[in-house]
């Protein structure tokens, strides 16, 4: 399987994992925070590795993975801390999660602007996703929630949203099929250009 196809599939799967984790947390907010930390850490670790692979893949649009060397490393680091040191992060899990989501959201904001410049039709969906993602991240950092259950629900909603964003970005902006031109390129043949007899519409 080509690296770009592998990265796209991996990105969708990790997005789905975030989404499912989010749904579980919203439905069962009393889930053990240690278990949450370990599962979220594992998903972040896997997602980080996929992102680093994605950065080195030959993605034609180069939008989804453009910052993913740095963001992939960040994801691996956060994932490792969440997975291996759950007791150390448990007291500040929402802040750490918020920082992670905010950083991703801000980079996604730039990706949305680049998508507009590039000519993507639905760049505004990316923009909405990135703004909302940043808002979710900020809300977790500011932490206006008093109970553990409310925090868990908020983390759940954030993960659910981040997962949906990841799936959309992967499907919409990662091209696995390369343009034919690179393999079969020949200079544009204009010899058969018909006489221009009418003005263009």
């Amino acid at each position: 399987m080509k690296l770009v196809r592998c990265a796209k599939t991996g990105n969708i799967v990790s997005g789905a994992a975030f989404f499912i984790l989010g749904v579980i947390l919203v439905i069962f907010p009393k889930t053990s925070l240690i278990l949450l930390s370990r599962v979220a850490g594992a998903v972040m670790l896997a997602s980080g590795i996929i992102r680093i692979l994605g950065y080195f893949s030959k993605d034609l649009y180069y939008l989804a993975f453009q910052f993913d060397f740095a963001l992939g490393i960040l994801s691996v680091l956060f994932g490792a801390i969440f997975f291996f040191k759950p007791t150390a992060v448990i007291s500040a899990i929402q802040v750490l999660m918020g920082v992670f989501v905010l950083i991703n959201g801000l980079f996604a904001l730039q990706t949305a602007m680049d998508s507009k410049k590039f000519g993507m039709k639905y760049w505004w969906i990316l923009l909405i996703f990135s703004v909302l993602s940043s808002v979710f991240g900020l809300a977790l950092i500011v932490n206006p929630f008093s109970t553990a259950s409310a925090i868990a629900k908020m983390i759940g909603m954030t993960l659910l949203f981040v997962g949906a964003e990841k799936i959309f970005v992967s499907i919409y902006t990662i091209v696995t099929k390369k343009g034919k031109a690179e393999e079969t390129y020949s200079p544009v043949d204009l010899s058969d250009f018909k006489d221009y007899t009418e003005r263009t519409e």
Partner: peptide, 27 residues
Amino acid sequence: TFVGLLNEKRLDKITVKDIVEKCGVSR
């Protein structure tokens, strides 16, 4: 590729995405 596209549509309708897709080079 760009000249080819210019023979098909208006300049303001051509995007980098069109060129990248048709030419096969990355963004």
